[in-house]
Amino acid sequence: MRRVVFDRKDEVMRFVARLTGESRYDGCSTIGLEKDGEIVAGIVYQGHNGPNILMHFAVEGSRHLISPAFVCAAFMYPFQVLQCNRVTGLVRTDNVGAQVLDEHLGFVREGVMREGAGDREDFIMYGMLERECRFLRGRYFAALQRELGRSAIAV
């Protein structure tokens, strides 16, 4: 069974850092997705400045592991809880799978951050405005409501 988790910050941060090739993320918030007790996807948020926050996403294995409830929570946090106007995603230029996933989610490619990664790989900068996000309502929101209603997760 898959479940959205809000209370495993260090574990989710290390999971995302390992899969994105970074050593760690400081000063962050996280949301994870567990399957059978193991983290299989995670999001690290950092650099919140009011209108924007950086969003680092990682999934181990197939992107089909991602649940509608997890996707809703991933975007509800910046757009509804923090009241951001946009989220920014940074994807390594050598990670084509992540580029495809970000574009599938509705992120718009906005530029390149040269040598932005820990190993000096370039990042592609993606952005999504709140009005472009399709995951805050409909089946995604209903899935998150169902999940939070049946679990003891505190938001």
Rank of each mutant, 00 (worst) to 15 (best):
K9W: 01
D10I: 02
V12L: 03
M13Y: 00
M13N: 15
M13K: 14
V16R: 05
A17R: 08
A17Y: 09
R18P: 00
L19T: 05
T20W: 07
G21P: 02
G21W: 12
E22K: 10
E22C: 05
S23H: 13
S23K: 15
R24Y: 13
Y25S: 00
G27C: 04
G27M: 01
I31K: 11
I31N: 09
I31Q: 07
G32C: 04
L33S: 01
K35A: 01
K35Q: 11
K35R: 15
G37N: 07
E38A: 13
G42L: 04
G42S: 06
Y45R: 06
Q46D: 11
G47D: 11
H48T: 06
H48C: 12
N49W: 02
N49T: 08
N52D: 13
I53Q: 06
H56F: 13
V59E: 03
V59K: 05
G61A: 00
G61Q: 01
G61N: 03
S62R: 05
R63V: 14
L65K: 14
S67L: 04
A69D: 05
V71Y: 04
V71K: 14
C72K: 07
A73S: 12
Y77T: 00
Y77L: 13
F79Q: 05
Q80L: 14
Q80W: 09
Q80E: 15
R86H: 06
V87N: 03
V87C: 09
G89E: 03
V91W: 12
R92Y: 10
N95Q: 14
N95T: 06
G97K: 12
A98F: 06
V100C: 06
V100Q: 09
L101W: 15
D102E: 11
E103F: 04
H104R: 15
L105V: 07
G106W: 10
G106R: 01
V108K: 11
V108Q: 11
R109C: 11
E110K: 09
R114P: 02
E115I: 02
G116L: 08
G118C: 10
R120V: 09
R120H: 15
E121M: 12
F123Q: 07
Y126S: 02
L129R: 14
E132L: 03
C133Y: 05
C133W: 02
C133H: 08
R134L: 05
R134G: 04
R134I: 00
R137I: 04
R137P: 00
G138A: 03
F141Q: 14
F141T: 00
A142V: 02
A142P: 02
A142M: 12
A143M: 05
A143P: 05
R146C: 04
E147K: 01
L148D: 08
G149W: 03
G149S: 13
R150T: 12
S151G: 07
S151I: 01
S151K: 03
A152D: 12
